[in-house]
Design a protein around this nucleic acid. Sequence first.
DNA 1: TAAAAATATTGTAATGATTACAAGTATTTA
DNA 2: TAAATACTTGTAATCATTACAATATTTTTA
Lengths: 137, 137
Amino acid sequence: MKNAQEHLISKGIHPSHQRVAIMDYLLKHRTHPNVDEIYSALNESMPTLSKTTIYNTLKLFEEKGAVSSISIDEKNARYDAFTQPHAHFQCIQCGAIYDLDLNQEPTLSDETKSEFTILNTQIYYKGICPKCKTPEK
Amino acid sequence: MKNAQEHLISKGIHPSHQRVAIMDYLLKHRTHPNVDEIYSALNESMPTLSKTTIYNTLKLFEEKGAVSSISIDEKNARYDAFTQPHAHFQCIQCGAIYDLDLNQEPTLSDETKSEFTILNTQIYYKGICPKCKTPEK
DNA sequence: TAAAAATATTGTAATGATTACAAGTATTTA
DNA sequence: TAAATACTTGTAATCATTACAATATTTTTA
Ligand SMILES: [Mn+2]
Ligand SMILES: [Mn+2]
Ligand SMILES: [Zn+2]
Ligand SMILES: [Zn+2]
């Protein structure tokens, strides 16, 4: 597990107390949390933390390439500190978001690749997750 | 170009005046419009049409599998009457959304496919579109 | 070091897309 | 035709996100 402070510095982000806490949370919770979940979790240990700071911070992180924002859930944005390419799955029953590895990346035709400059790719699956398929007995 | 009324009937949707107009617009404008764009376009010929009806209608269309909603633009939902599988590209400069055909669909491992029930797949690309790369001289 | 400047954080208010709701209109059924 | 059902409408509520202005903190400069 990479140190949150070093991680920020390596991305050119000044590691304030709040920023380190937010990045640390994202590194330790690979659940693709939304702003409210981050806020609730950190509020206990940092009661003065403001939700606006979380919004500002995540925007900065995204601009600096330290997190990616996931729009698989149309209600609110989710955040992911793991920026290696991978696909996402959201369960329509419990709402959980899973990382999925692809056997094979999708490919575009050479013509499309020459016409369009692709800067970002997001692959979203929806369905029923293993836990909801086979509930605890 | 398929007739909007027939299209609705084939999907089990009662073809009211408003519903036909909305489906007709989607079939004739493959631009992945949002609610406001549909509203503005139809308002001229149907001044009494309500935005709520557009929301209700698109929700119904989606439930019946007559359109798919595209969440590539985090600001608002986009709608697509062409439900064959295809990927989408949004230009970060002009905002336009293009259909992209894939040479090769992404594939998941057999293990993942057995664990998860996949009901829906969305593939989103972002970058610069051909028009913005080579502007009119 | 102390003032000034720059940066970061905070709380509140504004925005804007979507949904809830209740009333009105049109269509279908009996 | 009356009653029931389905559809549409306008307004109000909700809720995530952003704008803004005031503080607080850190860094720079004299
Ligand atoms: Mn992920
Ligand atoms: Mn499309
Ligand atoms: Zn689940
Ligand atoms: Zn463009």
